[in-house]
Amino acid sequence: MKFLVLLALFGVAAAAVHRAVNEELTADWVAFKAKHGKTYEDAEDLTRRTIWEKNLKKIEHHNIRASLGEHTYTLGMNKYGDLTATEFVETMNGYAMADKTDKSKGLSFMTPLNIQVPASVDWRTKGYVTPNLVDCSGDEGNQGCEGGLMDQAFTYIQKVGIELEKDYPYTAEDDTCVYKKSKKAAEDTGFVDIPSGDETALVAAIASVGPISVAIDASQDSFQLYAGGVYNEPACSSTQLDHGVLAVGYGTDPTGGDYYIVKNSWSDTWGVAGYILMSRNKDNQCGIATAASYPTV
């Protein structure tokens, strides 16, 4: 009798596991793992697949609403699609909110007199993001993947220099600093801070200076799965920032409205070839103008 009871319980448990996933998506799950080089043991595979299927449903529902004009951007599956929003933030976002110390004081940005700000600017040919800051700027107060400040990173560059992204690729992991002075591509003499929360000043800086480092709230699951369009996320915080990116331009979309062109550091497999259009002139949405700065050379 006990054997029959145990057998019945095993059957119920097996059925529950079976119902936890959509068998029609098995081939798609296998293809997803193959494309992104993912391999899991049985228990972990079930966990990751369950998360992946939930994200698929989220994408589908969001995009239906987008097709009805309720959203100005779309979502899509990417290599982070088998992570929960919490796991994604802990793995990928590393900006640390902190008070600036005396050793990281910069100049204040002053909008040039008589500047004529163009309607749109695009500096996407520049590509200045590099990850050796994650591994090597600890002495300036940054904490690797646990977070840091752009101004402290600029202080590091002033002292040591920086390599190109192709020579020091981003891995989303803390690692030993392997900076090679022989491959130094640039250095700076300090940095300039944009007035906090001032989007007019940020636009003027992008137009007159070039790409500007900005910190944003990238903790929403919609950011994790962003695929295109003008990202308008009212749930974003303008003060709780967790990710550093590069504003390389701005413009206006007839459907999505004003936007910033933002270069991320998660490779071209995320977003639109590594970029996102973030809402502009929406009360500093996602805090894009809260902690903006650029290096002086």
Score class of each variant (00 low, 15 high):
M92L: 10
E90R: 14
K105Q: 15
L113C: 03
L83K: 04
T111V: 15
G81A: 10
N114W: 02
M97F: 04
L75P: 00
N93C: 15
P112W: 01
T91F: 12
F88D: 12
E90N: 15
S67A: 13
T72Q: 07
T84G: 07
T86G: 05
T91I: 06
T74A: 08
Y80K: 02
N78I: 03
H71Y: 12
K103E: 13
M110G: 03
K103F: 10
L107N: 10
P118E: 05
G69P: 05
G94V: 03
L83Y: 08
T111I: 15
D82E: 06
P112R: 04
P112Q: 03
S67W: 04
Y80L: 02
K103H: 14
S67N: 13
K103C: 11
M77N: 02
L68M: 13
T72C: 04
T101S: 11
M77K: 01
M77H: 00
E90K: 15
V89I: 05
D99E: 12
L75M: 09
M110F: 02
Y80Q: 05
K100M: 04
A98G: 07
Y95C: 02
M110D: 07
S67M: 10
S104M: 13
D102K: 14
K100T: 07
E87R: 04
M92A: 12
Q116T: 09
V117W: 00
L113T: 08
E90M: 07
M77R: 02
G94R: 06
T111N: 02
Y73H: 15
S104H: 02
L83F: 09
G69M: 07
V117H: 03
M110L: 12
H71N: 09
M110C: 01
Y73V: 05
S104D: 14
K105P: 02
Q116W: 00
P118G: 09
Y95L: 10
M97W: 02
N114F: 09
V117T: 14
S67E: 07
K79E: 08
G69D: 06
K103S: 14
V117R: 12
G69N: 09
E90A: 14
Y73K: 08
P118S: 06
D102W: 07
T84D: 05
Q116Y: 02
F109T: 04
T84F: 11
G76A: 05
L68W: 11
L83A: 00
P112K: 06
T111G: 01
D99R: 10
L68A: 12
F109W: 09
L113M: 08
M77A: 09
M97V: 14
P112H: 02
M77V: 10
Y95K: 11
A98K: 14
E70L: 15
G106Q: 11
M97Q: 10
L113E: 15
G94I: 01
M92G: 01
E70C: 01
N93A: 06
F88K: 14
